[in-house]
Amino acid sequence: MATLEIQGLTKTYGQLKALDNVNLTVQEGELMAVLGPSGSGKSTLVRSIAGFVAPDAGHILLGGRDITFERPEKRNTAMVFQSYALWPHMTVLQNITYGLKLRRLSPEEIARKVEWALDLVDLSGLEGRYPRQLSGGQQQRVALARALVVDPEILLLDEPLSNLDAKIRYRLRFEIKKLQKRLNITTIYITHDQEEALSIADSVVLLKDGKVLQAGRPEEIYSNPKNSFVAEFLGASNVITDLVLQDREGLYVMLGGARLPVPAYKQPGEEVSIVIRADEVELGGEMPEGDHEHVSFSGKVNDQMYLGSRRRYEIETVEGHSLLIDSDRELPTGSVIRLCVDRDKIYIY
C-alpha cells in the first residue's frame, strides 16, 4: 500500500493531448475514481501508471519512489482490465497463480495466497474451470483475485464493470468497495459512469480532454460543480443557455418569469448556462412569503412520461426553455404550474 502522486503528467499523440498537465494525489488506502467521457484521457492515465504509456513530461511517484520510467513489470501495480484479459488457455487457478510464480514464492506460500484470494472473491470450487466456462461476473472476480493475490502497492481498475449487466454491476460495485476498504489498498478506479464514481469513491477526479476539471470528495463535487460540463456530466439533465441581462441592480437572467442573479465575471449580452437537476425541483410547490432560500418560477406541462416510481415532466417556461423535471405528483398535460427550487441547486455559469 502506498501513496500515489502524479505531477504535471503530459502525453501527446500527434495533435491530440491525451494528458495535459495532470496533478493528482491518491492517499494510502484511498479509492479515487477517475471519471470522464470517452477520449478524456482516463485510460492513458491509468496505462501510464501501469507503465504501458511513456509520458512526455511529468512524474509518477508511488510510495515516494519515482516510477515514471520504470519498466511495467517492475512497478508492482496490479491492473484489472476492462475486458478482464484472463488467459483463455489457463484455468482459474493457473490464472491466479501466474503472478506468484513469477515472484518465485515457495509452493506452500503460493497455495496459501491462492486460497486466500479465491476465498476473498468467493470463487472457491471454481479453480479448475476455464474462463470461458464462467459468467461475466465470475470472470471479473477472477481478474480481481489475479490482481490482488500479488499484493500490489496500488490497484488499477480500468472500467471493471462496464461489460456487465446493470444488476450484477450494482452488486459488484459494493463488493469492490468493501474489499478495497478491508484490504486498505490504494486504488484508482476508471469509469465513465457518474453514479458508479460517486457511490464507490473516496474522491472523484473529473477528466476532460486530458485536463483535470475538478477533483474532490463525491459530495463536494456533486453539490458544487465548477462548470456546466461537470454539472451535466454528474447527472444534471437540464442545461439552459440564455443571454445575460443587466439593470440597475446588476446582471441577471430570466427563468420562468423569475430573476436569477448572474456571477459578476460575466458580461451583459454574453451567453450564460443555467443548470438544474431533474430531481431537485418541486412541482406545484408554493413558496412561503419572504423566503430567500428558494426560487419560484412558472411553466406549462408540455408532455409527461410514466417511469414507475415517479413521472418525468417536460415543462416549458415563458422564455421558451424546455426543462425535464421528475416528480411523484400527478399533473395533467397542459396545466400551468409553479415550480420551486433551492437557490443553491440552481447553478449558473
Binding site: 501501469a50 507503465g51 504501458f52 511495467p72 513489470e73 517492475k74 508492482n76 501495480t77 496490479a78 491492473m79 482490465f81 475486458s83 484479459a85 484472463l86 488467459w87 501466474y98 503472478g99 513469477l102 515472484r103 489475479r146 490482481a147 500479488v150
Partner: peptide, 14 residues
C-alpha cells in the same frame, strides 16, 4: 488481444 500480454507484464512477466 495484446491486452493478454499486457496483463502478464503487469503482473511481473518480461
Amino acid at each position: 488481444p495484446e491486452v493478454l500480454e499486457d496483463a502478464a507484464i503487469n503482473l511481473g512477466a518480461s
